[in-house]
Amino acid sequence: MNPLLSIRDLALRIGGQPILRGVHLDVHAGQVAGLVGESGAGKSMVGRVVLRLQPEDAHVDRGEVAFDGRDLLWMSEREHATFLGRDIALIPQNPMTALNPVARIAPQMTDVLRMHMGMDRDDALARALESLHDVQIRDPERVLRQFPHELSGGMRQRVLIAIAFACRPKLIIADEPTTALDVTVQKQVLRLLKRLQRAYGTAILFITHDLGVVAKLCDTMSVIHAGRIVEAGPVAQVFLAPAHAYTRALLAATPRYDRPGEALQPIPAALTEQLWNEARTLDTGAA
């Protein structure tokens, strides 16, 4: 079966500096694909390009971003906008800044539905209530009347998840959605995300630095370093038999409470250097 989202050889520069160096990535319908890497690896940029939220000075050198058989990358701004919100939604990283602080929750939810689904006010309000119900918010009527600052971090993240699922999109880009949360809240939010994902058959591109979250949530995963995918495959395969030295190094650098005897190993400087050298050869090859 063709993947829902297929990224081929995506290369992007910002101010001449290569950020993505030929990224290949597939997200299949109804599956959760993890994109894992350290800060500066370019993982957020991949999601941003799909949403066309890359910075103004970013320049796409080459590549293809196909969604449902349509090329997102080179279509007009206007045409691309018809996909956003409706077919492709975003769950942003920081629940503190993603909501409008001076608007109540209700209009922030209904605006999305009225704009993308063409619903009238009452239908949109009914769907908003249903969506808040979906994310197990106990008193949805009350939350609709509240301002973001009246909600806890976990509650705000639930509202953002509700907004993302409200239009029943085919694909959700989730950019580190649980990084700012406490571990018990994170577990609740992940559980919720998985439940909705299964119920609506949504595909998710889950961007994170946390290998643990990938192991528990995702079906497939890609490991990104210096703007290129060094390893990709089904989650079980990558964790049980990591093929790339960088994947193994990431695992060895992750502390785990259940294996105190294993010495923590920072990623060897020689490996990082080698990977960067490999990445830079790609730059000269492209020039």
Partner: peptide, 9 residues
């Protein structure tokens, strides 16, 4: 609640 880096559905 800590997700350990072991695949487990």
């Amino acid at each position: 609640a800590i997700p350990l880096p072991d695949p487990e559905t």
